[in-house]
Design a protein around this nucleic acid. Structure first.
Ligand SMILES: [Mn+2]
Ligand SMILES: [Mn+2]
Ligand SMILES: [Mn+2]
Ligand SMILES: [Mn+2]
Lengths: 158, 158
DNA sequence: TAAAATTGTTAGCCTAGGCTAAACTATTTG
DNA sequence: CAAATAGTTTAGCCTAGGCTAACAATTTTA
């Protein structure tokens, strides 16, 4: 890999448990994370819009901004992106609607989010902490892990 | 919240499990995720550099690039940032060293990464999948959840 | 030891996702 | 029904983190 002469064997630093994974596999790990980061904010917006519609009857930019903790300008710009992606429809100064693609994404994201949240609760994590952790973790959980979490919930919830 | 007249009650959409969290708490969820995203790439680089030094005796930009799956230019730019942050020392065209702050960060990140990885393994997730999921999840796991994961590992590993 | 190959750096470009300030539109109120 | 308030959009700015292409330095090899 390196063009340079290798230093003497038996490094002075303590060797932690596992060996490094093969280069290709290691790169795929980070690539998967980068890809998740491209889509997660979109998923969070769409999921939130779906939740606002379900729980409040409508999704308005101001409510999205206060729930996301960002400025209204940021939300406005994001709505344009969601529109270009075919996930929402919007008219200027009016509230938002999900397209059918948007509804699908909201449903899938919400289902996954709920599994992760309920898994953490079943593990014994405090509700507030579980909600915080789930908000980030949900985008990095494979289908395989998700299925295992679901089974764990079934086994450990009355 | 909204200036607009509320639409009729009893929305037509199915109400999924939980109610929306209070606005302030909800915003803090997303803020925590945004903050994690500011630091996670730094942590991954520092952790990888520490691993390369531990397992290979040195950390070279080319090896970082191939393991991260990014271009060498990207790594070079990132190394400058790590330098500015006081996490690594480097001389042009030479391999990298962690400062003591860098070693601390590498140690903490590696320990957390290992707990998340071993937790997923203990749950029954396939090793390759567990490594991919852990690479992303690790940055979104609170200390509280981490402690619970550690206890789970102790209880479920021979 | 000169040439080739590899590794590292720099410059310039791009997108995503934040922000503030200012302008515009809609709704509510006096 | 006009003024005040609330909500939305736009413009312009910024940083992080990717990329490619060109160049510079080092190491390896013929
Ligand atoms: Mn989320
Ligand atoms: Mn890590
Ligand atoms: Mn990671
Ligand atoms: Mn993340």
């Amino acid at each position: 890999m390196s063009q340079h002469t290798q230093p003497p064997e038996t490094p002075t630093v303590l060797d932690s448990g596992d060996a490094l994974p093969p280069i290709e596999q290691h790169a795929r790990q980070y690539e998967t994370v980068r890809f998740a980061h491209e889509t997660e904010l979109i998923e969070d917006y769409v999921e939130l819009i779906g939740d606002l519609i379900a729980h409040r009857g409508e999704a308005r930019a101001a409510d999205i901004a206060s729930r996301m903790g960002v400025s209204q300008a940021t939300v406005s710009k994001m709505i344009r992106r969601l529109n270009e992606l075919g996930l929402v429809t919007s008219q200027p100064y009016r509230s938002l609607f999900l397209t059918s693609a948007g509804k699908d994404m909201a449903q899938v994201s919400r289902a996954r989010h709920d599994i992760v949240l309920n898994f953490l609760r079943a593990l014994g994590v405090n509700d507030t902490t579980a909600r915080i952790d789930a908000e980030g973790m949900e985008h990095h959980v494979s289908d395989e892990t998700l299925a295992i979490m679901q089974a764990f919930i079934r086994k450990n919830t009355k």
